[in-house]
Amino acid sequence: MVKRIVVGAHYGFRDWLAQRITAAVMAAYTVVFVIAFAAAAPAGHAAWKAFFAQGWMRVASLLFFASLFYHAWIGVRDILMDYVKPVWLRLSLEVLAILALVGYAGWAVQILWRN
């Protein structure tokens, strides 16, 4: 039997960079969102729904959510690597986090395009 050690190899720099790029995307979206929200001042359900139904808003929100879930994955994995030492438990929690985040991504698409 080959003794393998589960270590974090080969993805360090890529994820470090991805965490920063996704952060920049989310920061830009936050600023744009606040400005657009202040400008439109949507009051009530109909206006709020119309605000999110704009074409550019859907695409911008999709980019935000995609960035968010990738960013969250890197952060959660870092936390699990630091504090959860038993490999079976860490891998299980990592799988749960991935499933949750991929599920959230599908849910977010549904929220943005269903209306």
Binding site: H45, W48, F52, A72, G75, A100, Y104, W107, I111
Partner: peptide, 18 residues
């Protein structure tokens, strides 16, 4: 991260219907 489910639910509900 832990609150993401609830926050998505709030957004979902806010856009779903009156």
């Amino acid at each position: 991260f832990v609150s993401a489910f609830w926050l998505l639910w709030l957004l979902d509900a806010s856009l779903a219907s009156e």
